[in-house]
Design a protein around this nucleic acid. Structure first.
Lengths: 156, 156
DNA sequence: GCTTGATATGTTATACTATTACAGATAGCA
DNA sequence: TGCTATCTGTAATAGTATAACATATCAAGC
């Protein structure tokens, strides 16, 4: 679950992610427009969170859009369909590393290299407490900021 | 742990919170300046998260400061010393409901009435996964958005 | 009490993040 | 083809946060 911090063949991540996105859109009659596809590719190209304006800058260079709403709309689409998550602590976005399944994600975020690994928080205690309090959860944010193994070694 | 959603004598919250803040500052030779004290009182006055600019507006009316850094500095002081938390999902701040102990907080946030209850997430699974991945956690954000019991009844 | 150094405040300006609103284009279907 | 929903283009603006630097205040040691 913490592949972002391990060396791996990243082209595999990219290919399978894009394929899943295509399949999901086809199955659900969603329009995978050039901007949406490209924003997903950009997010997917690395295990780092990117700000909306970073993405917009790339779109601008490629002639795919010039104003903030272009980026935010594409991001809303991806987040809404489970293909990206917003990292609230960074005001940034990251491609979902296992889209499609209806999960509650948790993130390990390195403050040095900005890489983000998605894991499973298993928030049973929180769910039980919410349930006991009569609170119905619609969305959860679980983010752990810290230092990843690579950056930790570098410091030592 | 979810007092925010129960009816209670709120003046008790306010008194004990302020007393703890005063004691902590005295013990640690921290300067509890008028702005800092007042911002804590404002946050403490309700179990809701407030934006920095909401707080600034109040400070302005009271002649305690007119520019954003005044509010952000006071908030940084409170957050840094454990007397307030930032709710990342709202870009807002809330007084800590049990300051002093070195805890990992979790929040239940009602999207209808904006009340926020602080609970204990018991994030053992997350900690174990981080540890397994060689990731060292420095700060965690656990926020559950949803509907509180009062608002849920109202809707029904 | 006075000096000194550290900490806090006042203020201007600006950077960064996000949305509203409306006009125009495109896709899919009757 | 024409209708309708959806997506895109663009301008304007709202909302959140910080940098930078000058001034003021505090607390400790002389």
């Amino acid at each position: 679950m913490t592949r972002a911090f391990d060396s791996h063949d990243h082209t595999h991540c990219e290919k399978t992610g894009l394929a899943e996105l295509e399949r999901h859109c086809a199955d659900n009659k969603l329009r995978l427009t050039p901007v949406r596809r490209r924003v997903f590719e950009i997010l997917q190209s690395q295990h780092k969170a990117m700000g909306a304006y970073d993405i917009l800058e790339i779109l601008q260079k490629e002639g795919l859009g010039s104003q903030p709403p272009v980026a935010y709309r594409a991001l809303d689409f991806l987040v809404g369909n489970g293909f990206a998550h917003k990292i609230e602590g960074l005001n940034a976005f990251i491609a979902c590393s296992h889209p499609g399944d209806n999960h509650i994600p948790a993130f390990l975020i390195c403050r040095k290299c900005a890489r983000v690994a998605e894991t499973d928080p298993q928030t049973n205690a929180l769910r039980r407490q919410a349930s006991d309090a009569g609170f119905s959860i619609e969305h959860t944010v679980v983010e752990a900021m810290g230092v990843c193994p690579d950056c930790s070694e570098t410091a030592a």
